[in-house]
Every structure is written in C-alpha cells, then in structure tokens.
Design a binder for these strands. Structure first.
Lengths: 143, 143
DNA sequence: CCACCATATCGTCAATTAACGAATTGACAT
DNA sequence: ATGTCAATTCGTTAATTGACGATATGGTGG
C-alpha cells in the first residue's frame, strides 16, 4: 500500500463519469446494462470505466444468470478505497447531474435488466428529444 | 461545490508528484526553490504543479522577501480539500519515496532558501551519482 | 454441444496532461 | 529608477486518457 495503489484509487475518482457510476451504486448493485442506460455512454466506454473502478478496488462484480452486477466494494483490499467511498457517500448529494442520474437509476431498477437489454440499453426518455445527461466541466454553475 | 470542484481536488491528488509535494509540506511550509530541490524536476514543472494544487485549494502561498513559501491550506474554500488533506496525513507515511523526500526536505530546510538558490536549486547529494529520486509506477514493490 | 447475447477487449482518434527549456514577469534591493 | 533573480508563463513534445465502433469472449439456456 503506497503511492501506486493510492494513485489507482485517486485516478479512479478523478473522473466525473466514474464518480457518477459510484454514486448510482450507492443505492445498491446494478447490472452493466442498467449502468449503460443511466449514464448513456457507449457500452465499451462504460465497460472500461468499470474495469478501472474494479482494478482500484472500489467496486466488485457478481454474475447472476446472463447479467453481471456491480456494487461498491465494502471490504476492499485497497486500503484507500474504504475511506474514499465513505467520503463520496457524504459528498455530491446535491449535484444536479448526480440527482438526475439517481432518478434515471431508479427508473432503471424499476424496469429491470431484461427490458433494458431488449430496448438496446437505453431508458424510455422523452419521446421527442434525445435525453442524455452529460457532464460539462465548463457549464455555468447550477441554477 | 459539486462535481467540478470535486474533480479539481481529486485530479490534483491523482498525480504522484503532487502528492509528494503535499507530503513534504505536511512538515511545514517551504519555498518554491526548496521544493524544486527536493523533488528534482524542472522549475517550470514544479511551478505548474503548485499552480494546480493552489487552484484546487489544497495549498496557499505567502511571499517573504525574494521567496514564495507554500503551505497546506488548513481552511480552504474548497469543501473537499480539508478531508483529503486529513486523509493524506495518515497515508503514505511508510512509502519509500515519501520517506526519501522527507529526508531531502529536512536537508533543504537546514540549508535554507538562500544556499539552495545559489546552488542552482539542487541539494548536495552524493558526490558521484546523480541522486534524483523518481517515481516509477511499474517498479517492483518496495523491498 | 451449440447458438445467443451480455460483457470485455481491441484499434483508432481527439483531447488532455506532464515534462522540458526559453522567455517573461514583477518584487526586492540597491 | 533600475538591475537582479525567484517564480510564472509560454511553446513544444511525448505519453496518457476517454470516447467510439468493431470484434472477440465465454457463460446461459436451449
């Protein structure tokens, strides 16, 4: 446990997309297809993010039938993972994007993996506009 | 205080060089030329790192005569800075590179800014070999 | 034991980042 | 006022990163 593993964890939580994933996992485990639907980025992109989060010891996975469910790793081998997850739980709970993700995550949980995969890993969303919440670092501060 | 400022702080501590700087500042404030001598990277490189750490609210600066002294920012405006600094204080205290930096920092403090600047911002070091402690992410685990 | 399909991996591209040396800045001290 | 010099900013380069679409993998369920 030294600079190396510290770097892994900090780099993992330095990316807003990965933080968004961690924040929706706070509510409970989720399968990959659901995470893809909520975050609305390419499947390979999400897969890579999950790989990095797991490599950092922040999340763990479990297979159930055709689906792989990810969840926060409560007892990580990485010394730094626990405290970081505990801080995160207290933080960002009023961030607009995190809130929106939570809503979408709730929807994804209701719908369930089967229906989400059938729909091509997307959420219902509004009929007209493409509804994909994105993180824009340079967006004006929340209203 | 949301994803944006969280990102700033986490990105700041995701870089091992910046962590090394924070760890030597734990022992007390230091002027730029001393930090350069301890970390042994280019002057402009260190200056950039200090800029990012300050932008993240992790450190603050103070001018004394010709020298600018940096120190950990105990009461940062960035909500995330305090907890992160507090964690860091507990962490990495047995990392080989951090330990070596501490020795060099002690030396730099003894010598003082004046002498260090005269020496071209370097520490005495062993007579023969170029003695520059570097972080190698892929180095075999510490002996 | 085979086909399917959820997930992982690969290859590519654009954007970001960390390093360097050179040029600039600006406070101090004459 | 002005030269000095510690520190910052600039410009370049190589390495890393995040995104994508296409392809590969391997567990499930027939």
């Amino acid at each position: 446990m030294s600079l190396r593993s510290h770097e892994d964890v900090m780099k993992a939580v330095a990316d807003p997309t990965r933080v968004r994933i961690l924040k929706i996992l706070e509510e409970g485990e989720m399968c990959v297809c659901q995470i893809i639907a909520v975050i609305a980025l390419g499947q390979s992109t999400i897969s890579k993010h999950l790989f990095l989060l797991r490599a950092a010891g922040l999340i763990k996975d479990r297979r159930d039938k055709k689906w792989i469910h990810y969840s926060l790793d409560g007892k990580s081998v990485n010394l730094y993972a626990g405290p970081v997850l505990r801080n995160l739980r207290k933080w960002l709970n009023d961030d607009p994007l995190v809130l929106k993700d939570r809503e979408r995550a709730a929807m994804a949980r209701e719908i369930g993996p089967i229906a989400i995969c059938e729909r091509g890993m997307s959420l219902p969303g509004r009929k007209t506009a493409r509804c994909r919440p994105v993180y824009d670092r340079d967006a004006p501060a929340a209203r």
